[in-house]
Write a protein that binds this DNA or RNA. Structure first.
Lengths: 246, 246
DNA sequence: TTACTTAGTGTATAAAATACACAGTAGCAA
DNA sequence: TTGCTACTGTGTATTTTATACACTAAGTAA
């Protein structure tokens, strides 16, 4: 463990999204504070993954560090989306208690840079790695610490805008996916429902979504064809324009 | 002058855009460092408007404070677009000299939150107010301090994306404007050229762009009709969808 | 009065979005 | 083996939207 000191008024928070069971999920860590004397649990809630920036550390690197620590992954999509710098960010009693106990050196005006990350949730098994970290559907969030509810909302909005301009959805899917999965993912993030035939017509025009000679297996219905996304082809063909709606 | 201490590792920078003579401009302040002994000028360059966040100050308020100070305005469009937090942001010799002289208490890892602001440049006369502050066309920028070149580029990109989703362009125009001005502004920000008839057809569908019973005056050609933007009507009619391209 | 400059307008064609219904196939259970 | 379930996969007609394009109008200035 490296003994680098942390910058007391600067942190990063990673909103890590995954897609599973037809729903968008976010990775949260359980936070539980016990009374120092009685051992009684004072509160339980959840937070996104965050940490203070270290002395001499780039903020992007701080976010990558947090991400690596929680997911084990390194090369996944990660992008800054907003910085939260209100003085009253830490105003709930339990947040103050928590900080007083865990981070006594931290001032109470902490500015936090929010990062949005997308992972293939089939690859992240939080249960086995971190027993206090688990996935929650974004429409069924538990009690959240600090201003993390606002952060998640803002990250979602960022995502909704961004996926209409860039091919980010593939970060949320396994390497090989079906068109129904893809459509489902769009519908779920954008909160719309799309016509299957028209959706497939559009996908058909995107040369960078490539059909494999391979079918789904072990499903109790007609097996779907399997596709991959080729960033290579994407970069070469249509860097411009990536519209699934309109 | 209030004696509030500033947070040494946290600042805000405002990229203030204006539109004039058919070009997008950015407001910059001249920075000149003299040798303490000889009085000789060591360097001259320009920076965007920034300042450190004060103790107990929300970052949005810090940005508003900077904006007010430089433009005299309070209620103009202002939005955070990116946070710059690399450790090597301040790597040029002249930036180090400047900080050593002017802000000796400041550490060399300063995280800066970038804000984008849009003003009606006919209302801001920097000459009279601040003799070191003036407008520069974004395609003819002078030598810039710190990482402000990157900041301006990033702010521009933010603008380009944003104006296609929200009616921000009107912030850059006088209250009353002509359709040619509006079209010119779009062309200039997006770097495209638009067909006049098609452009006007589209504008015609936007009920929140309202023709006045009034014409341009004092121009050496057919005077154009004058329009206003009604945020009221906008809010009521199409919060959704605001496309000038496609 | 003429020249100059920008404003203002309509139509035909091409492209894109939308709406919509039925047959195919794998697994499973009776 | 048959039938049920559940999801896959496909084409066309219609409406809407985008695009391309050229001439007259109105004011100023010389």
């Amino acid at each position: 463990m490296l003994m680098t000191s942390l910058i007391s008024n600067l942190s990063v928070d990673c909103i890590i999204f995954g897609f599973d069971s037809g729903k968008l999920h976010v990775l949260l860590t359980k936070r539980e504070l016990e009374d120092e004397v009685s051992g009684q649990i004072l509160f339980t809630d959840y937070t996104v993954q965050g940490h203070h920036v270290l002395e001499g550390e780039n903020i992007d690197d701080a976010a990558r560090r947090v991400l690596k620590e929680k997911t084990g992954f390194d090369n996944i999509y990660l992008e800054q989306f907003h910085t939260f710098g209100n003085t009253d960010r830490i105003h709930q009693e339990r947040d103050k208690l928590w900080i007083a106990r865990k981070y006594p050196m931290v001032t109470n005006h902490v500015v936090s840079v929010g990062y949005c990350s997308l992972v293939d949730s089939t690859k992240v098994k939080p249960d086995t790695q971190h027993q206090f970290t688990s996935w929650f559907a974004v429409d069924e969030l538990p009690l959240l610490g600090f201003d993390h509810g606002i952060m998640i909302e803002k990250a979602l909005e960022f995502l909704r805008v961004k996926i209409q301009r860039e091919p980010l959805v593939f970060e949320l899917l396994p390497e090989k996916f079906t068109l129904s999965q893809l459509q489902n993912l769009y519908e779920c993030i954008l909160g719309v429902s799309l016509d299957r035939r028209n959706f497939r017509k559009k996908i058909g025009q995107m040369k960078f979504i490539i059909a494999l000679n391979e079918k789904q297996k072990g499903v109790a219905h007609k097996p779907a064809q399997v596709y991959i996304f080729s960033r290579d082809v994407y970069d070469r063909t249509k860097k411009e324009k990536f519209d699934i709606l309109t």
